[in-house]
Each structure stands twice: as C-alpha cells, then as structure tokens.
C-alpha cells in the first residue's frame, strides 16, 4: 500500500498547534494593527514603547511562535486545499515542497527578526 513512510502526522502536529495558536491570537492582531490603529479608533503607541514591549523576552517568544506556527498551520491546509481544488494527486508532492518549504523559510526569517529586534 505504501511506497514511503508517511510524514503527514509530523506536519499535522504543527498544523494543530498552529491552528490553536492562530485561532486564539490572529484576529485580535488584525483588528488592532490592521484596522483599529490605522483608522485612528485608538491612538498609536510611541515607537520606542512598542519596541521596548516587543523586546521583552516573553514577547519575543510569543511573536516567534505566533508567526512560525501560523505559517505551518497554513502550509498544511493550503497543501491539502490545492489537491481538493485541482483534483490532481500529482500536485501533492510539489505543493508539499512549496508549502512546507515556505513555512520553514518564514520561520527562519521570524527567528532572525525576533532575535535581532
């Protein structure tokens, strides 16, 4: 039945963790940073204050997890959705490379950004 070991449980674990994290935290970030602040519903915090907040070790870990896990969550879903929408099994392997590869690159970028903040 199988040709190679199935690594989907590995990716699924990150998909699940990312789903939990993003479902709890992504909407409020979009609401605040994408709408409430730009539209002037609330006042922008000072740049220095915001930077100091982001440099808090806990904030760094939180931001890294939020970005990395959201990317792995999305990568897994998008990979399966491509297969569902295009009805082509042949797309699955290239899609997996692009999706998970993208998530890994994004995670490295996030690690660097959070580290050198």
């Amino acid at each position: 039945m199988s040709k190679s070991r199935n690594n989907d449980p590995f990716w699924w674990s990150f998909f699940g963790a990312g789903g939990v994290f993003s479902s709890f935290f992504v909407p409020i970030h979009i609401l605040l940073l994408g709408l409430a602040l730009p539209l002037g519903w609330v006042l922008w915090p000072e740049h220095g204050d915001l930077l100091a907040l982001a440099r808090n070790p806990l904030a760094r870990i939180y931001l890294f997890l939020l970005i990395a896990l959201s990317l792995f969550h999305a990568a897994h879903r998008i990979r399966f959705t491509l297969h569902d929408l295009l009805l082509a099994k042949s797309i699955d392997t290239p899609a997996a490379f692009v999706c998970y590869g993208g998530a890994i690159v994004g995670t490295l970028c996030a690690a660097m950004t959070v580290w050198t903040l």
């Binding site: 992504v26 994408g34 931001l63 939020l66 959201s70 999305a74 993208g102 903040l117």
Partner: peptide
C-alpha cells in the same frame, strides 16, 4: 489569510526594529 497575516506581522516587526 492566516499565512498572509503572519507575513505582515513579520514585516511589521522588521519595520519596528
């Protein structure tokens, strides 16, 4: 959109630093 927003958040952090 979750992925797109993760990228936007990353860009926001880069701009901040």
């Amino acid at each position: 959109f979750v992925a797109a927003y993760a990228v936007i958040l990353l860009l926001t952090l880069r701009a901040l630093s």
